[in-house]
C-alpha cells in the first residue's frame, strides 16, 4: 500500500498544531498529464485495477478526515486533489473495461443493458456459489 506509506509520512510531517489560515501556493493548473496514467491503468488486470482503486480511495478517505480538522493545510489539500484525480481516473478506466463501481460511472459503460446489477457484489464468494 504505497499510498498509505506516503500518507503516514505526511501525517508525521504535519503535527496537529499545524494550521494555515490562508491558502498558500496551490496552483490548480499543475495537474499531471493523464495520458500516460491512462495507459498504465489500461494495462492492469481487473484485480490489479480494483486494488489500485482501493489504495487511492483509502488515501482519499483518510486525507478527507485530516482536512476536516485542518481545512487550510495546503500540502494536505494538494495531496487530496491528486488522489481524488487518480481515483476518478481509475474509476473511469474500471467502468469502461469491467462495469461501473459507482452510479456516476454508469454512463461510461459501452453496453445496452444495465450493468450496475450485472457485476458481482463484493461479498459474493469467488470459490463457491458466486456467478463467476
Amino acid at each position: 500500500m504505497n499510498q498509505m506509506n506516503q500518507m503516514n509520512q505526511m501525517n508525521q510531517a504535519n503535527p496537529n498544531n499545524r494550521y494555515y489560515p490562508v491558502n498558500r501556493g496551490y496552483q490548480p493548473n499543475q495537474a499531471p498529464c493523464s495520458c500516460r496514467q491512462n495507459s498504465v491503468l489500461n494495462s492492469m488486470s481487473q484485480a490489479q485495477l480494483l486494488n489500485y482503486i482501493n489504495e487511492v480511495s483509502f488515501a482519499v478517505s483518510d486525507i478527507l478526515l485530516f482536512l476536516d480538522t485542518h481545512p487550510c493545510d495546503c500540502e494536505a489539500l494538494a495531496y487530496c486533489r491528486e488522489m481524488v484525480a487518480k481515483r476518478n481516473e481509475a474509476l473511469k478506466a474500471y467502468s469502461m473495461r469491467f462495469g461501473p463501481l459507482t452510479i456516476d460511472c454508469t454512463d461510461l459503460c459501452d453496453s445496452n443493458r444495465w450493468e450496475w446489477i450485472m457485476q458481482p457484489f463484493p461479498w459474493e464468494s469467488k470459490c463457491k456459489g458466486g456467478c463467476r
Binding site: R113, I117, M118, P120, E124, K128, G129, G130, C131
Partner: peptide, 10 residues
C-alpha cells in the same frame, strides 16, 4: 441455491 445473475442466469 448458488447466487444467480441476469441475463446469463448462472
Amino acid at each position: 441455491q448458488p447466487t444467480t445473475c441476469p441475463p446469463c442466469g448462472k
